[in-house]
Simulated assay, not measured.
Amino acid sequence: MQRIEFPLEGEYVELNQLLKLAGLCDSGGAGKQIVASGAVTVDGDVELRKTCKIRAGQLVRVADVEIHVVAR
């Protein structure tokens, strides 16, 4: 499993933007499609809200990639 540590700037990042910024897709629109497909979990639960606010300390998983969101 690939592990990405994402340093959060600010209070939160929207889930679709996180997928883009982490390099898992090319655009926020593509990130929305990935979320809508049910392929994304946040802290172990499937997340279907495309603009869900992701904060430091949360774990996002897509396929075999884990994104650990950490405070900057």
Rank of each mutant, 00 (worst) to 15 (best):
A36F: 05
L8I: 01
G57R: 12
A39F: 05
G28Y: 10
G23F: 10
R55I: 09
D64F: 05
V35N: 03
E47G: 02
Q33D: 13
G57F: 12
R55Y: 11
G28I: 05
Q2E: 13
G10L: 02
S37H: 08
Q58P: 02
E47D: 08
Y12F: 15
R72N: 08
L59R: 13
I4V: 13
A30H: 07
V35K: 03
G31D: 03
E5P: 03
S37A: 15
L59Q: 12
I34G: 03
L24A: 11
R55H: 14
K53F: 00
D26C: 03
A22D: 05
T51K: 14
M1N: 08
A56D: 06
G28L: 10
G10H: 01
G10P: 04
C52A: 15
D45V: 13
V46K: 13
P7F: 02
G29M: 05
Q33T: 13
R3Q: 14
E47L: 01
R3N: 12
I34Y: 01
A63C: 06
A22N: 02
V62T: 07
E5F: 10
L18K: 04
E66R: 12
I67Y: 04
L24N: 09
E11G: 00
G23A: 10
H68T: 02
N16L: 03
G10S: 03
E14I: 00
K50N: 06
P7V: 01
N16D: 14
E9H: 09
A39K: 13
L18S: 09
G29D: 09
Q2L: 09
V65D: 08
P7E: 11
V60G: 09
I34F: 03
D64C: 02
Q58C: 02
C25Y: 10
E9C: 03
D26E: 13
R3L: 12
